[in-house]
Each structure stands twice: as C-alpha cells, then as structure tokens.
Simulated assay, not measured.
Amino acid sequence: MMRSIAVPLTVLVGLVCASASAQVGASPEIFTGMHRNESIVGRPETATITDGKSFIQLTEEQYRAGNYRPAYETLPTRIVRRLPVRKDSKE
C-alpha cells in the first residue's frame, strides 16, 4: 500500500519544486506584467506576470526587485470584491 502512494507523492513533490524554481527564475526579458491585485485582509499586493504561456503571481516587492516591465505604478489594478453569503429565512 505504501509503495502505491510513494510514486504519486514523489511526482507531486517534484512538480511543486519545479513550480517554485520557475517563479524564482522568471527573467524580466521574457516575462511582462499584466495587472496588479489589490491587497485583501492584510495580504500584500501582488502582480501577475506572463510569458504568453504561463502566469506567475509575485508580491509587489518581488516585481519591483525583478525590474519587470511595465513599471508597477502603470499596471492596471484588478479589484475583486466578494459579497457576504445571505441566509434565506424559511418559514
């Protein structure tokens, strides 16, 4: 039973590590900024970058430190608001 779980778990860990290295290795020559996301509930603001095939979310600090184009201030801001769930009263 353990052997049947070990193989998919190893593959999953490999995919997660590859994704993390892709985020670190995103070069500003290839990736460009698409939009920024406002901060929600104390989380930092993020920016989404793309190379035309994949998308990566970075914090504002990572975006600025990576020298991605266009400048962070010129990116359009994506605002997502969620409405609270209403409970219908049934009589």
Rank of each mutant, 00 (worst) to 15 (best):
I40H: 11
A18Y: 05
V11P: 08
G14N: 04
E38I: 15
R43Q: 03
S19C: 08
I79L: 13
P44N: 03
I30L: 12
T50W: 09
S21T: 06
Y68E: 00
G66A: 15
I56P: 04
L15M: 14
Y63P: 09
Y72C: 07
L15A: 14
S39M: 10
T10E: 05
E38Y: 07
E61H: 03
E29F: 03
T77I: 15
A47H: 04
V13G: 15
S21N: 01
L12Q: 03
V11W: 05
G52D: 00
R81E: 02
G66W: 04
T77F: 14
T50L: 09
G14H: 04
P44E: 03
V13Y: 02
Q57Y: 05
T10Y: 10
V16Q: 11
E60G: 14
E73G: 12
F55L: 15
R43S: 07
Y72K: 00
T48Q: 08
A47V: 07
A22V: 07
S54P: 04
P84Y: 06
N37V: 13
V41Q: 10
P44G: 07
S19M: 10
Y63R: 06
A65S: 15
Q23P: 09
Q57V: 05
V41S: 14
Q23R: 15
T59N: 01
R82I: 09
E60Q: 13
V24F: 04
L9M: 10
S27G: 15
P44L: 07
G33Y: 08
L12T: 00
G66M: 09
E45N: 05
M34C: 07
A47W: 04
D51W: 06
V16R: 08
I79M: 13
C17N: 03
I56V: 12
T50S: 14
Q57A: 10
Y68A: 06
G52K: 00
V16D: 10
F31M: 01
G25E: 02
